[in-house]
Amino acid sequence: MSAVRGVADRDPGLQPERTRLAWRRTTLSSTVAAVLAVKTALHGGASAAGIVACALVCALWLAFLLLAHRRIRALAATPAPTALPPRQAALAVLCAMATAVCAAALVV
């Protein structure tokens, strides 16, 4: 009986699950960007500046991973999760922008 009620309580549109998967996809995208950054840094002999930029990109990727993990846990905690805090959205965007700056340093 409780299993049936559990199904009824859940949002039939599976909105929290879809949002969780969107975070997963975005993490995957940032992984691809980080892998390309490592490839660029190691291509044609690694320089000291290249290694530093590469390490920064990896740190940013880790930060994004933790951010996504936190949000996913918040989504799973309640049946009607609260909206994304603006600070977390800004941090996610800052990660992407800092990755772009490191990329510019690597490419030039």
Partner: peptide, 30 residues
């Protein structure tokens, strides 16, 4: 809350687009 989550997914889709453009920058170089 479903409207907020839909808005969040749209935000994430745009963030993926941004990350894809950044990846494209690396790809052009490599």
């Amino acid at each position: 809350y479903r409207f907020s989550l839909a808005n969040e997914r749209t935000f994430l889709a745009w963030l993926r687009t941004a990350l894809a453009l950044i990846g494209g920058g690396f790809a052009v170089d490599q």
